[in-house]
Design a protein around this nucleic acid. Sequence first.
DNA 1: TTGTAGGCGTTATCAC
DNA 2: GTGATAACGCCTACAA
Lengths: 342, 342
Amino acid sequence: MRDVARLAGVSPMTVSRVQAGSSRVAPETRERIRQAIAQLGYVDDKVAAALSSRRTGFIATLVPTITNSNFADTAHGLTEALRETGYQLLIGYTLYRMSEEEALVRAMLERRPEAIVLAGMNHTEAARTMLRSAGIPVIEIWDCGAAEPIDRAVGFSNIEAGRAAARHLIALGHRRIGAIGPAIGGASHDFRGEARLAGFTEVLRQAGLPADAVVHRGQVPVSFAGGAAAMAHLLDADEPVEAIFAVSDLAAVGALMECHRRGIAVPDQVSILGFGDFEIGGQCVPALSTVRIDAEDIGRRVGALLLRVLEPRDGAPAPSRVIDVGFEIVERGSTARRPGRA
Amino acid sequence: MRDVARLAGVSPMTVSRVQAGSSRVAPETRERIRQAIAQLGYVDDKVAAALSSRRTGFIATLVPTITNSNFADTAHGLTEALRETGYQLLIGYTLYRMSEEEALVRAMLERRPEAIVLAGMNHTEAARTMLRSAGIPVIEIWDCGAAEPIDRAVGFSNIEAGRAAARHLIALGHRRIGAIGPAIGGASHDFRGEARLAGFTEVLRQAGLPADAVVHRGQVPVSFAGGAAAMAHLLDADEPVEAIFAVSDLAAVGALMECHRRGIAVPDQVSILGFGDFEIGGQCVPALSTVRIDAEDIGRRVGALLLRVLEPRDGAPAPSRVIDVGFEIVERGSTARRPGRA
DNA sequence: TTGTAGGCGTTATCAC
DNA sequence: GTGATAACGCCTACAA
């Protein structure tokens, strides 16, 4: 920058102003500086700028994984909302491990992000302490309602989604109802998937239905293969299920494919309800009924919320602490009413 | 840090040494500093450290998109390879737009990354200039062989993959062969998908076969829905295709589902060959034959390469400039020999 | 509209 | 083994 200033015959401060887009620079001075910048191929240094201005322009984001998942959609929505604002996302993968999340929280805070976004409301005590004392907005996403957020939350109620799924299948006349979720225990923990399964099981029990076909097996995160394996397990059981709910569309599609391979008709013999509304669900045959979540929208809303919090405009009302984006059951081809039942 | 130093009764420099893991600090001094850090909840500031040491610990990564794609796998592999090293990935999405890529290159370089990884070998002239003068390792990924890399490359030959796909379908006895790729033109450009289609078409022509069933339609990036629509287009044509190649497994699965919906038997009536080996391909019915790419491995290799380049060990040989990870045709259930042909 | 002074929080370097 | 000093490249604050 010194070189640019010298070449343009001004002080570094003036160059700085041009780079910051200040209007308080004479047009001709600005032009001279522009040329000097182009001539020298100068690229300004946000590292130094960040230290000096105490504004890094970083937004830290911690998600369980970015592959095969709608967290990628959320990250995408967030990136889109932040495009053109100069903020840069710092993304970390926790692999569904709290210990990993804690390590990432520390690593991220060392980069001095201006806000931090993380999935879920379950964190280690150390992580909570760091988050609270960081002095920046903390947005917990993909879950809300079940607990008080550290700072703010954007999501929906996973337990309520599970309950709604159960009510829906019961209302279709099914009685022998199962569910598919990942194994519990081990280092990886999908708290949100478990909450959905818990809500689901709760409603089954309340309706006086057995919940022994709620299977927890396979790795976290769930996958097509895991869903297929769990479905195989259920189909091998003595008493066949009439309907199942999968904690993720990935598992649901895997289950659907397992039915195809065995020649079991969906939805005639088994109804399948997924979760998440992945694109593949709308395309497979039959199209998958699912609990729809707009993952990308969560990202966009977080982005909009962040902009309002980080750069408040006069007169704008303070955004609410918890934003519930809700969910919606989408009835497509993989679920049907049980013949001969109410 | 000053506060920590004061509380521990040492100079800031000694605290810095402890944080950097230097062994030249007396054990008891170290312990005192540790306690002061814990007591104050001090989290060190990598922004300042970066400015001072001129090492940011950032690796910039530019990919077309992170959703519905194996670029997510590559990013994941890279993150895994870099986990525990202290490097932080800076990820940007170009949305398959060169202008966006150029803007991102500039934005990334302002963060002073220690290396930059970007998809493909097509960049604007301005981007190339910035990349060359940044003075850091530049790794182009997901394509190699067709052109000289700016610095280094890790990938495979897309045109060769397309050629192999065509040879494979021809060897199965198919004559009326089509292909599905995104529309050409517009702001978004999938150069690698186009290279695959170009190689494919080239071989068809060389074999004296018509290439009019090579369709370019739908948005970039291709999706399940786009593949289904393209397949519908081909199936509506007067002369039905015997086999098709899709530039992505997503499109291939979409095409497969369209066949299901129309009651067209795969592979008996139409063979479908995908590209990318997405998990869904292995799970759908019939399982999708595909050109297999280990996307996560590309990420891991880039990570390993970067570590060797950024932190060279004495005696270690210099890594080669171009790493071709190759590809492999995986024959599963969606392709079959044309009955009655050689 | 432009410039000067000082400092952001850390580390490189050299001295003790 | 520890400390003093001087940057790192920019921006805030104030002055001209």
